[in-house]
Design a protein around this nucleic acid. Sequence first.
DNA 1: TTTATATATTGCAATATTACGATAATAAAC
DNA 2: GTTTATTATCGTAATATTGCAATATATAAA
Lengths: 107, 107
Amino acid sequence: MGITKTQIFNVEQNQLAIIFKVLSNPARIAILQYISQQESCICNDIVDEIGLAQPTISQHLKELKSIDLIKGEIEGKKVCYCINLSKWTEVQTLLNSFFNTTKSNCC
Amino acid sequence: MGITKTQIFNVEQNQLAIIFKVLSNPARIAILQYISQQESCICNDIVDEIGLAQPTISQHLKELKSIDLIKGEIEGKKVCYCINLSKWTEVQTLLNSFFNTTKSNCC
DNA sequence: TTTATATATTGCAATATTACGATAATAAAC
DNA sequence: GTTTATTATCGTAATATTGCAATATATAAA
């Protein structure tokens, strides 16, 4: 089939899965790490840094944006991508909550 | 293509991506949550609880085992699955390290 | 207004993932 | 040893993901 049976799981489970899926690619991890280290974060720099084609990077950036992990400010003909700190912290808290809850109930 | 260019990323990036990928499915989230709540955690119980076919659950359990997030003890004809607490904590620490490092460097 | 630069979108091929039926393997019960 | 119960594996269909070339869009510069 290839399709996940989303409807049989609850909102929290699907939400966690979506977050994990966005983070489940080394290119997107590398992009996040690179963006966080830059003063000004421009897509074309990312292309040079990561070593994937420009459309591929653009697609990964779109996926990161889809859950608001990053935000892009248009500066002339460039786009300055930055980590969305509030969402970043929110996600970290959510994941820790999942890890702590699951851990503490362990038999 | 469909294949991730693993070779252009470092060990940490690939490792994080693999962990996130294992966690990127709501069925596997649900399985982890369910296992953590049970005294004795048997695959057939999981099948009843989650609502996916037995081979599907078995496959998901295999993926969770592939990074040692769970361990299965054979008890007669049943298998008792449990969260692998040491690995669980290790993964949580690793993810927090990633989140903290990436966050703190943000411009 | 043409040209150059930066990013996004589209379309496609290769591969991966999800799910399940059929079946195999294992071990207890009889 | 046969049966029953539990879990794993195989094979397969449907869908998703990854990556890129070609192209579109948008803005600045000339």
